[in-house]
Amino acid sequence: MTRQLTTQNATITTAAVEVKTLTISGKQVTLAVFRQLKEEPLIAEDGTLNGEPWGSVNYHPDKCSAAAEHLHVVWQKGTELRRAYVDGTPNFDRVLSGGYRVSADWYSSVAANRYLTALVYMGLKTSNESILDSRPPSFATRHATHLSRLDFPEELSQAETFSVRATVPQDAVDAADLASAYIHAQTEADVGGEGALSSGWQKQTVEQRQEEVSRLRVKYDEAMSALRAMIEKCGGFDAIGDAYTAEIAAEEERRRRHHDVHASLAKLPQLFIAV
């Protein structure tokens, strides 16, 4: 009769050639017993361990030997033993075929979105030119926003060890679009009625262009007021910046813990079990 493997009856012994075996009541653990261990993650989301790792077993109970580099680790949770599938690298470091990184490499959050929104507002307030490139006309990409002329702080686009991806609400896109349209209309108005066939047409052209400038200015001011209200609802510029900075620092620390844990697990002794 196969006995259950527990922390009370399981031990690790070392042979003369430094081969470590996992035993139960003095007998080497079999594959059947190993398979009975409940599988549970060893590494928590915050990069800490959920228990004490004992060692790795070079056996793939789920026929995963062809998968990416990984370990099957035996670990202790309280008074019970568990087994865990541990990837060779953290998920945010994985590279897919073709050299593409998984989406987890990018960090995104509400705090990052709010920070970018605040930067867009400040950019619109201080810039005398459009901060938007022309947007692609295709249906699939017509809502894409290209904020190319706004000088974002370096830490928003690239933190110490990872990239940050952020999006802005439609109010920010509308304000940026109106700013672009307003600047263009003002440029046209500054030209006046040059090229008109008569003084009458020239006067009419100037009036029409000035009316367009006034109309766009009103709508732009309304959009900026709505955007500022959104920012103030989130605590204002300082609070948004502080929250973003603290969150990025915490994420960098979390990723560092994951790297350290993976490095330590890679050095675990291999535990030999019987066929």
Rank of each mutant, 00 (worst) to 15 (best):
M1R: 13
Q4C: 08
L5Y: 06
L5T: 11
N9W: 11
N9S: 08
N9F: 13
E18W: 08
K20T: 09
S25T: 10
S25G: 12
Q28D: 11
T30Q: 12
L37G: 05
E40N: 12
I43P: 00
E45T: 11
E45Y: 04
L49T: 01
P53N: 05
P53S: 08
V57E: 00
V57K: 00
A68F: 05
H70C: 01
V74G: 01
V74F: 01
W75K: 00
G78L: 03
E80S: 13
E80V: 06
L81P: 03
L81D: 04
A84V: 00
V86M: 04
V86Q: 02
D87C: 06
G88K: 01
P90Y: 04
P90Q: 13
N91T: 15
N91P: 02
V95I: 14
S97I: 09
S97L: 11
G98W: 07
G98R: 14
Y100L: 09
R101P: 03
V102Q: 15
S103M: 10
A104E: 11
W106P: 01
A112K: 03
N113V: 03
Y115T: 00
T117E: 14
T117I: 03
T117L: 02
A118E: 14
A118W: 09
L119H: 15
Y121R: 15
Y121M: 08
G123T: 07
S130V: 06
S134L: 09
S134A: 14
S134W: 08
A140T: 10
R142S: 10
H143C: 06
T145S: 07
H146M: 11
H146R: 13
L150C: 10
L150H: 13
D151V: 06
L156F: 07
L156W: 09
Q158F: 10
S163Y: 10
V164H: 06
A166K: 01
A166L: 00
T167R: 08
Q170N: 13
D171Q: 14
V173P: 15
A176T: 04
L178P: 05
I183N: 07
I183C: 05
H184N: 14
A185E: 02
T187K: 15
E188C: 05
A196E: 13
S199C: 04
G200I: 09
V206E: 12
Q208F: 06
Q210A: 02
L216P: 01
R217V: 00
K219H: 14
Y220W: 12
Y220I: 01
E222V: 07
M224I: 12
S225W: 07
S225A: 14
R228M: 07
M230H: 13
I231A: 04
I231H: 10
C234M: 08
C234S: 15
G236S: 09
D238W: 03
I240D: 06
G241L: 04
G241Q: 11
G241S: 14
A246P: 05
A246Y: 03
A246F: 04
A249P: 05
E252M: 03
R255Q: 13
R256F: 06
R257D: 04
R257I: 07
H259A: 11
H259G: 13
D260T: 14
A263W: 00
S264A: 15
K267F: 02
L268P: 00
I273N: 02
